[in-house]
Simulated assay, not measured.
Amino acid sequence: MDLDDRILDYARRPEGRSGYRPPNEEQREDLARGVGHLIDGDAGKAEKVLGDAGFRVTRLTDTDSGRRYDEVAARSSDGRAARWGRLYLNADAAVRWSVQVPHPVTDRNTEALGSRLLESTPGGALVLAGAHRTAGRGDTADVAHRTDSVFHAVVTELQKRNVPGVQLHGFAESSKRPYDAILSTGAMQTAPGEATLLADLMENSGLRVCRGWSDQCPLEGVTNVQGREAQRRQSTFLHVELAPRARGGGNDAPEARAALIGLLESWNSRA
C-alpha cells in the first residue's frame, strides 16, 4: 500500500467539494475520546468508541518505507462522516508532533506536503480535513475557523497531550506578499524556539520569510481557532503560509519541505 497515494486519493476526491454538514457535539466528543484512546495506546477502547461513532481504525503498512500507520476514517466512503476528515498516526512510535491540513485542494498541494512530512519522519500524526473549505453553507467547512468540526476536536485532543503542531496553508503571490513563507504562532504574540528554528532553516536555504512575531506580516492566523486553543492550553502551534513555488512542484518546494522536516526532527529529539 502506498500511503501517499491513499491520502491524496481521499483529499482530492470530487465529492469532498459539496454537501458538507458538521458533526453534532456528541459525535465530536465520541471521536475525540476514541482518538485519545488510540494516542494513549489502547487500541481496543479506541476501536469500540470510534466504531460506535461510525469510524474505524485500519492498520496500514507503507510499501516504500515499511512504516506502519493507523488510519482513522469513516466506515462508509460516502455520507456525512466521510467528509469530516481523517487522522493518520505513526504506529511504530509515540506521537511527538502533528501536521495539520485544514484546506486540502483549496490551498493547493498542502495535502501532498502534509503526506510527505508524515512519511519522512517517524513519530507523527497527520490531521486532514475531509472537505473543500467552500463545501458547506457559509464557512461551515472552513475548519481553521470553526470549533464544531472533527478536525478541531482531534487537534484539541493532541494539544491536551502537549503534542506540538504545524498547520499548513497556502497563499497567492502578490506585490503585498513578497515572501516564500509567512510564519506565525497564531493567537500567541511570542515565538517559541521552534518558530525561530523553522524561520532560520528556511532563510538559510534562500527562502524569503516573514516572521509574524517580530515583523508586520499578512496572514498571521490570529483568528485561527486551533491557534487560539493552543494559546489557551499553552501548547506549541505554528501557522505556516507558503507561496505556490514553496509547495508541490514549485522551485522552492524542496527547501521548504527540508526546513519543515528539520522542525519535526527537532520535536522528535526533545522527547
Results as ranks from 00 to 15, higher is better:
residue 69 Y to H: 10
residue 234 Q to A: 11
residue 187 A to F: 03
residue 9 D to N: 14
residue 162 N to I: 11
residue 219 L to Q: 02
residue 129 A to R: 06
residue 193 G to S: 08
residue 43 A to N: 14
residue 152 H to T: 08
residue 134 T to F: 15
residue 18 S to H: 12
residue 104 P to E: 05
residue 81 A to G: 11
residue 157 E to T: 13
residue 120 S to V: 10
residue 10 Y to M: 05
residue 158 L to R: 07
residue 211 R to Q: 10
residue 30 D to Y: 12
residue 254 P to D: 04
residue 129 A to F: 01
residue 205 S to A: 14
residue 131 A to Y: 03
residue 153 A to V: 08
residue 61 T to H: 05
residue 191 A to V: 10
residue 22 P to E: 06
residue 259 A to Q: 03
residue 261 I to C: 05
residue 29 E to I: 13
residue 37 H to Y: 13
residue 134 T to M: 15
residue 160 K to H: 13
residue 110 T to E: 09
residue 232 R to L: 08
residue 167 Q to C: 04
residue 6 R to T: 15
residue 192 P to C: 00
residue 249 G to N: 15
residue 123 G to P: 10
residue 268 N to D: 11
residue 22 P to W: 02
residue 104 P to N: 06
residue 59 R to A: 13
residue 3 L to P: 03
residue 104 P to V: 06
residue 77 S to N: 15
residue 200 D to Y: 01
residue 161 R to P: 12
residue 113 L to E: 15
residue 51 G to A: 02
residue 253 A to H: 08
residue 123 G to H: 00
residue 116 R to W: 07
residue 24 N to I: 07
residue 201 L to D: 08
residue 264 L to M: 07
residue 181 A to T: 04
residue 177 R to W: 05
residue 141 A to R: 08
residue 66 G to A: 04
residue 115 S to N: 05
residue 221 G to M: 04
residue 203 E to C: 04
residue 232 R to I: 06
residue 239 H to M: 01
residue 217 C to V: 01
residue 77 S to L: 14
residue 100 Q to P: 04
residue 67 R to L: 07
residue 96 R to L: 12
residue 179 Y to Q: 05
residue 75 R to E: 14
residue 102 P to Y: 04
residue 174 S to K: 04
residue 167 Q to R: 03
residue 201 L to W: 02
residue 41 G to H: 00
residue 22 P to R: 11
residue 238 L to P: 00
residue 112 A to R: 14
residue 147 T to K: 14
residue 131 A to F: 03
residue 158 L to A: 09
residue 174 S to T: 11
residue 216 Q to R: 15
residue 32 A to N: 03
residue 250 G to F: 03
residue 247 R to N: 09
residue 15 E to P: 09
residue 42 D to R: 06
residue 14 P to V: 07
residue 166 V to M: 13
residue 139 D to K: 15
residue 224 N to S: 06
residue 140 T to R: 15
residue 156 T to M: 11
residue 85 G to N: 03
residue 183 L to I: 03
residue 111 E to G: 06
residue 192 P to S: 00
residue 111 E to H: 01
residue 189 Q to E: 13
residue 252 D to S: 14
residue 192 P to W: 01
residue 115 S to I: 04
residue 204 N to C: 08
residue 251 N to K: 15
residue 256 A to F: 01
residue 135 A to L: 02
residue 267 W to M: 10
residue 267 W to L: 09
residue 61 T to V: 13
residue 83 R to E: 10
residue 117 L to K: 07
residue 106 T to F: 15
residue 219 L to R: 00
residue 124 G to M: 02
